[in-house]
Amino acid sequence: MTTLDLSTATRRDLNGALHALPKDAPTADWTVLHPEGQHALAAGVNAPVTVTIKGHAGYYCAGMNQQATIIIEGNAGVGVAENMMSGTVHVKGDASQAAGATAHGGLLVIDGNASARCGISMKGVDIVVKGSIGPMSAFMAQSGRLVVLGDAGDALGDSIYETHIYVRGSVKSLGADCVAKEMRAEHLAELAELLAAAGVDARPEEFSRYGSGRTLYNFHVDNAGAY
């Protein structure tokens, strides 16, 4: 195991070393001490390695992640796992705004709450939030799955494309073209799989599904007069 202490080493030391890891062979685990909310920790990693950050992380932690498992034993700042391509990011505390923004793949698990715009423009990532999510989450979400065990704030899924959203608690309001949908057998199966992957013990039957009403996909001819 490699331990790096950010009270003495720099963030560049950390990210430089992580970027130098072999992409196609497993590496022994890394532990990062004293993160103190610094930004861009373990961003841009592309290697099958597990990195544990012992404390709170700042902005864009684990951004652009590929392959790696990144565990944050604290809260994460704005844009955790933004643009993740693959791998797993696990936030043990709360996440700030825009968690998993634009992420294409992988799994983001947040044990606490995520604030505004969780999963904004998500493009294929799976996000599981054990607490609640803030307003404007899954804004313009394109694909992937968002699972929320708690409640969702205002304007959930505004201008959504094809992301599947599952919420166990209440939804304060739905955004434009986001609608409640029937929970069919394939959705229960998909949700059970996601809950298992995130290590959550919850019954899929307790969740409601939301998705695209698909009314914003095409130009509405009745609006032609506006031009």
Partner: peptide, 8 residues
């Protein structure tokens, strides 16, 4: 504005 400011 950011957690860093509170870290100390």
């Amino acid at each position: 504005s950011e957690y860093r400011a509170l870290a100390g």
